[in-house]
């Protein structure tokens, strides 16, 4: 078999777009130690990094660095083993399938079709697991960020009350004036088509936009909130706005904290 199809798969893999049976096939090929493909993947990744490097630099908010340094200081040394078992198990399972495919190919070609089906199913299960793992990782990261926040003495909990437009709604913000925090909302009806909810911080003269969010079918939502650059927040408020959010509030207020 010519190597040409793998040149293409390697490029698609490098940009993170390979899926289905192609992904299973290419990963099995990589595990056989194809240096041509390794080179294509490596050079493509470098080119994509070059693309990212072309963007004008943006200095990230200082609290990110501070939080990272705190976390790194709190961890005596890097620990990786505990979180490794899922990729390990996936890798082992896929390696077993690939090894089986190789042997079967030597012994009896009629097994190949069945193994192809198996490989595709494995690829689907892996993709599903990968997505679920990503979702879990998100949730763990959010929970960990809140735990970090709650450890800080100056962190407080701000209550948000539902107003006339949404009397059943309520909210809480875990808040630290410098580090920011996280918003939790309950009992808010889903925003109408073409609308979204937008959070505002009021510290100075004008409200500052603090991000948009949508609620799930149970009326719940949660999102990170950054500290505004115009001083300590006096009031938090949520309004209903056109989808995508707006720079200054225009719609009805649904939630607000007490002054």
């Amino acid at each position: 078999m010519s190597h040409e199809p793998f040149d293409t798969l390697a490029a698609v893999y490098a940009v993170g777009a390979l899926d289905g049976g192609d992904l299973a096939r290419f990963e099995a090929h990589l595990r056989e130690g194809c240096s041509t493909c390794e080179t294509i993947v490596r050079e493509s990744s470098e080119a994509l990094a070059g693309l990212a490097r072309e963007r004008p630099p943006v200095i990230p908010p200082a609290h990110v660095r501070e939080a990272l340094i705190r976390r790194v200081d709190a961890s005596s040394r890097p620990r990786t083993s505990r979180r490794r078992w899922i990729p390990w198990a996936l890798g082992t399972a896929a390696a077993a399938v690939a090894a089986a495919a190789f042997t079967a190919g030597m012994v009896a070609s009629r097994y190949e079709a069945r193994l192809g089906v198996l490989a595709r199913e494995t690829a689907q299960v892996r993709e599903q697991l990968r997505r679920e793992q990503a979702l879990l990782r998100e949730e763990v990261a959010a929970a960990r960020a809140v735990a970090d926040l709650l450890r800080m003495p100056a962190t407080r909990v701000v209550a948000l009350n539902g107003l006339a437009a949404a009397p059943t709604a309520s909210g809480r913000i875990i808040w630290h004036d410098q580090a920011g925090g996280r918003l939790y909302v309950n009992g808010l009806p889903p925003a109408p088509e073409g609308k979204t909810y937008e959070l505002w911080t009021i510290a100075g003269a004008a409200p500052r936009p603090a991000g948009t969010f949508d609620v799930d079918t149970a009326g719940r939502a949660s999102r990170p909130v950054m500290p505004p650059d115009d001083g300590p927040v006096k009031v938090f408020a949520v309004t209903l706005e056109p989808a995508g959010g707006v720079p200054a509030p225009t719609g009805p207020m649904v939630l607000a904290s007490a002054k």
């Binding site: 990230p60 908010p61 990261a141 991000g211």
Partner: peptide, 11 residues
């Protein structure tokens, strides 16, 4: 989204 991006950057 700036808040989400800062979160991801930290992670």
């Amino acid at each position: 989204d700036h808040a989400d991006a800062a979160d991801v950057l930290q992670e």
